[in-house]
C-alpha cells in the first residue's frame, strides 16, 4: 500500500484530518532546509509537500517566489531535492512526501528518469501546478509505473463537468485550491470550503486536502473540521524570510519554524 493511502487510512481510523506542511527544498540553503524537513514529523506534520524550486513560479505569491529564488541562489537543483528526500527516508519510512512544483524542471530532467529517480529516493506523489489534465498524459504513465501518485488540483472555478475530468485519473488525494489566486494570498471562508469539499466528494472517494490562504491554527482547525487534510505553506516559508531579515542563527530559525508548525498541527488536531 502506498504511504499516502496508509497515512490517510490511519488518520481516518483516528477521526483526524491530516496536517500537510509545505517547504521549498533547499530554502534558504540545503543544510537548514534538510534540518527543517527532518524536524517536521516530530511537530505534527502528517504529510510533507516539498517544493521544487523554479525560476518562474507563476502560480505562487511572493513568499514562495522568494523562497525559490533563495534556494536556487544557494545551488538547489532537482538532483539535490532527490538527495534530500533520500536522506529524510533513512530516518522516516512512514511520512509521505509529495513533490510540488512546475513542469519544466521535470520535463527537462526527462519525465521517465524523473519518476524513476523520485521513486528510488522515496517520493510518494507529485503535484505539478502547471500541468492540467489536458497535458498530463505523458507524466501519468511513468508515475503509475513507479507507484507515484499524481495529485490533481480542483479550484473554485472548477464546475461539475470540470471536476469529472479532474478526478478521472487522480490518485493519492485531490488538492482543493481554496481561493482563485496565488499561494499566500486571500483566505476562503470556512463555509465556502465546506461546500466545495462536499461537492468534490460527490465526484470521488479520494481524500480531499485544502490549501491556499491557511495561515493560523484557527483557520487550520476550521479546515480540519471540513476536509481530510489542511495544507499550510506560505505562512511557514515566510518565517525563513523573517529569520534571514533578523539575521537569526540557523538553530533559532529552525526552532521558530518548528514551534510555529507545532501550533498549526495543534490547530488541525483540535478541529474535530
Amino acid at each position: 500500500m502506498s504511504r499516502l493511502k496508509a497515512r490517510f487510512d490511519a488518520l481516518k481510523a483516528d477521526n483526524r484530518a491530516a496536517f500537510v506542511t509545505y517547504i521549498q527544498a533547499g530554502d534558504p540553503n540545503r543544510d537548514v532546509s534538510a534540518a527543517i524537513l527532518a524536524g517536521l514529523p516530530s511537530v505534527g506534520a502528517d504529510i510533507i509537500e516539498l517544493g521544487m524550486p523554479f525560476t518562474d513560479p507563476a502560480a505562487d505569491g511572493p513568499a514562495i517566489d522568494k523562497a525559490a529564488q533563495r534556494a536556487l541562489a544557494a545551488g538547489a537543483s532537482t538532483k539535490q531535492t532527490f538527495e534530500m528526500v533520500r536522506e529524510f527516508r533513512r530516518a522516516d519510512e512512514a511520512t509521505p512526501i509529495v513533490l510540488m512544483g512546475y513542469f519544466n524542471p521535470v520535463f527537462h530532467y526527462g519525465i521517465d528518469a524523473f519518476c524513476k529517480d523520485a521513486a528510488v529516493a522515496g517520493v510518494d506523489g507529485l503535484i505539478i501546478v502547471d500541468l492540467p489534465p489536458e497535458e498530463d498524459a505523458e507524466l501519468l504513465a511513468p508515475a503509475i509505473a513507479n507507484n507515484i501518485d499524481v495529485i490533481r488540483l480542483a479550484t473554485p472555478t472548477s464546475d461539475d463537468d470540470r471536476l469529472t475530468t479532474i478526478v478521472k485519473d487522480a490518485s493519492g488525494f485531490v488538492y482543493y485550491v481554496a481561493v482563485a489566486g496565488v499561494t499566500g494570498g486571500k483566505s476562503a471562508t470556512a463555509d465556502d470550503i465546506g461546500d466545495a469539499v462536499a461537492r468534490i466528494k460527490r465526484h470521488t472517494d479520494l481524500p480531499v486536502a485544502v490549501g491556499f490562504g491557511i495561515k493560523t491554527p484557527e483557520q487550520a482547525a476550521d479546515v480540519a473540521a471540513r476536509a481530510d487534510a489542511a495544507v499550510v505553506g506560505s505562512a511557514i516559508v515566510s518565517l525563513i524570510e523573517q529569520g534571514l531579515e533578523k539575521q537569526l542563527p540557523n538553530a533559532d530559525m529552525i526552532e521558530n519554524i518548528l514551534n510555529f508548525t507545532q501550533t498549526l498541527a495543534n490547530g488541525v488536531r483540535s478541529g474535530r
Partner: peptide, 20 residues
C-alpha cells in the same frame, strides 16, 4: 484542437485558469 503545433504549444496553466 488542443492547441498543439506538432509537440509544441498546448495549455500548461494552473487549474484555476483552465476553465477560463
Amino acid at each position: 484542437e488542443k492547441g498543439h503545433f506538432g509537440q509544441y504549444g498546448g495549455r500548461y496553466v494552473s487549474e484555476t485558469l483552465m476553465p477560463l
